[in-house]
Structures are given as C-alpha cells and as structure tokens.
Amino acid sequence: MAVIFRVYDSDRNGKVTMYDILEVLRDLSGSFLTDDQRKQVVIQALEEAGFSEDSALTYQDFLEVLNKAGLKMEVEVPVD
C-alpha cells in the first residue's frame, strides 16, 4: 500500500489531499466518470472514515480511508 500512497502523494510532502486523489482518479477513470461524480465518491469515502474534504491524509489516514470505505485497489489487464 505504501507504493499506492506514493502515487497519490504526487508532490511528495507525505500527505494526500482530496485534490491529489481526484487527480489520480481522473487519470484512472477517464471519461467514465464526471468530475462531479469523482468528487462525490472521494467526499463520501473521506466522510465514512471520519475525515473532511479539507483533510490532508498521512499514510495511516490514507489506509484508514481505504479500509473504512471498503474500497479495493483492483487493476484489470487486457488480454488479447
């Protein structure tokens, strides 16, 4: 999970903000989700873990958000 945290912590300050998360989700979801949909998902996940959209998450906070929101990190690899 530390590797995933580093992906979200693009400025390498040891904290992840909602905007850091939105940036990565934008890259991952492309046009599948709108910016508003992405923002709602992130806000809901943060709130379920007891954080607000203004929170700057440490690594431990980040893990807590993932665990409490029941989010899973899954990657699909296309096979031709």
Rank of each mutant, 00 (worst) to 15 (best):
Met1Cys: 08
Met1Asp: 10
Met1Asn: 07
Ala2Trp: 11
Phe5Thr: 00
Arg6Asn: 12
Val7Asp: 14
Tyr8Gln: 00
Asp9Phe: 09
Asp9Arg: 06
Asp9Cys: 04
Asp11His: 09
Asp11Thr: 05
Lys15Arg: 05
Lys15Tyr: 01
Val16Met: 03
Val16Asp: 00
Val16Pro: 03
Met18Pro: 12
Tyr19Ser: 11
Tyr19Cys: 10
Asp20Ser: 09
Asp20Cys: 08
Asp20Val: 04
Leu22Val: 01
Glu23Phe: 14
Val24Met: 15
Asp27Pro: 08
Leu28Asn: 14
Ser29His: 10
Ser31His: 07
Ser31Glu: 11
Phe32Gln: 14
Thr34Gln: 00
Asp35His: 11
Asp35Ile: 08
Asp36Cys: 02
Arg38Leu: 15
Val41Trp: 10
Val41Gly: 03
Val42Thr: 07
Ile43Lys: 13
Gln44Asn: 05
Ala45Gln: 13
Ala45Glu: 07
Leu46Gly: 03
Ala49Pro: 08
Ala49Phe: 06
Gly50Leu: 06
Gly50Glu: 04
Gly50Cys: 07
Gly50Phe: 06
Phe51Gln: 01
Ser52Cys: 01
Asp54Arg: 15
Ala56Leu: 07
Ala56Met: 10
Tyr59Val: 01
Asp61Ala: 13
Leu63Asn: 08
Val65His: 06
Val65Phe: 08
Leu66Gly: 11
Asn67Lys: 13
Asn67Cys: 10
Ala69Glu: 03
Ala69Gly: 10
Ala69Leu: 05
Gly70Leu: 01
Gly70Ala: 00
Leu71Lys: 09
Met73Cys: 03
Glu74Phe: 01
Glu74Ala: 04
Val75Asp: 03
Val77His: 10
Pro78Tyr: 10
Pro78Trp: 04
Pro78Gln: 07
Pro78Phe: 07
Val79Phe: 10
Asp80Lys: 11
Asp80Met: 03
Asp80Arg: 06
